[in-house]
């Protein structure tokens, strides 16, 4: 995983070093993008995810334009099948429009996945870089906390936390971030350890740059690509976690729709409304699959070690 050793000339000045580091990064980036353009599978996954994300982000605008309220009940129009006039994806048990609900649920599910993964990474990067750079007592304490948290199966902490905190979408983001940060911290700490003894960092220190400046100006940007990769992988995992919690009755509660709780609610009605089971399941499946493929593809494309 280490990058090529810095050239001897790089020892001349910090400015030079920074420039060369940046150049190397840019060339990696360029090479990555070039590789990515050839990876059709990843491109397809990216496009699908982009469309889903846009549909979700603009859900209120879209359903508003169609004149559909995702929460309006209509008890006499329950279990309408896919393709019913006015209800593109049919209706659920109490006559709510499934299309509108899927879009609004996507907002919540993707939101939990995206922000959960983003917050975990932010916390993880902050602590990981500090622990890796400072080492010593801070590192030991962080290590102890992380090992402790990692020794409890995460679903188990999730279950305890969710029953203690009654999750709304926002609370759930908080909970998964609180659990997810340990993995990110480990990853970032490892990367920092590798970078910390690089010449350009040593020189920066010799020039009197403050620790914070070194960490957040010199180290963090250099481990940025790992952050992006971890993000893609994390979102998919969290969408699945959300649905699992819903299954255990501890996820986001109705009337707020998520793909997970729509799927859970529909289980018992699979005879009367198979489309209610099929559609949210498909959404989760497609989204998570795309995210996995994107994660793999990005790693392939931006891994400096792999050959073309």
């Amino acid at each position: 995983m280490t990058t090529a050793a810095p050239s001897p000339s790089a020892r001349l000045s910090v400015i030079d070093l920074e420039l060369s580091a940046r150049r190397r990064r840019e060339s990696l980036m360029a090479r990555g993008l070039r590789r990515l353009r050839r990876d059709r599978l990843t491109l397809v996954a990216l496009s699908i995810l982009f469309i889903l994300a846009m549909l979700s982000v603009f859900a209120p605008v879209i359903t508003g334009a169609m004149g559909i309220d995702p929460n309006a009940t209509n008890p006499t129009q329950g279990f309408l099948p896919i393709g019913s006039p006015g209800n593109l994806l049919g209706t659920d048990k109490i006559g709510r429009d499934q299309f509108a609900r899927i879009l609004h649920a996507g907002r919540v599910s993707l939101g939990i996945g995206f922000f959960g993964a983003l917050f975990s990474l932010t916390i993880g990067t902050t602590f990981g870089v500090m622990a890796g750079y400072w080492g010593g007592a801070f590192d030991d304490i962080m290590n102890w906390i992380i090992t402790t948290l990692d020794s409890i199966p995460s679903l188990f902490i999730l279950v305890i936390l969710s029953s203690a905190l009654r999750p709304s979408a926002e609370v759930l983001i908080l909970i998964v971030s609180l659990i997810g940060w340990t993995g990110a911290t480990r990853l970032m700490r490892g990367q920092t350890l590798k970078l910390k003894n690089m010449d350009y960092i040593l020189s920066a220190r010799a020039m009197g740059a403050s620790a914070l400046r070194i960490m957040f100006v010199h180290i963090v940007p250099n481990i940025f690509s790992y952050t992006a990769l971890a993000l893609a992988g994390g979102i998919g995992g969290l969408i699945l976690t959300e649905s699992g919690l819903s299954f255990l009755g501890l996820g986001v509660q109705p009337p707020t729709a998520t793909w997970g709780n729509m799927l859970t609610d529909a289980q018992q009605m699979f005879r009367r409304g198979p489309h209610l089971v099929f559609v949210p399941g498909l959404m989760i499946f497609v989204t998570v699959l795309c995210l996995y493929i994107i994660g793999d593809g990005l790693r392939d494309a931006f891994d400096p070690k792999t050959e073309d």
Partner: peptide
């Protein structure tokens, strides 16, 4: 490669409880 990359994660991308129930059914 592409096929196995997809196949390997395809079942993991479905919520376990739902896949379980569908297989039971």
């Amino acid at each position: 490669d592409n096929l196995t990359r997809v196949l390997a994660v395809v079942f993991d991308a479905i919520p376990g409880f739902w896949l379980g129930l569908m297989l039971i059914l």
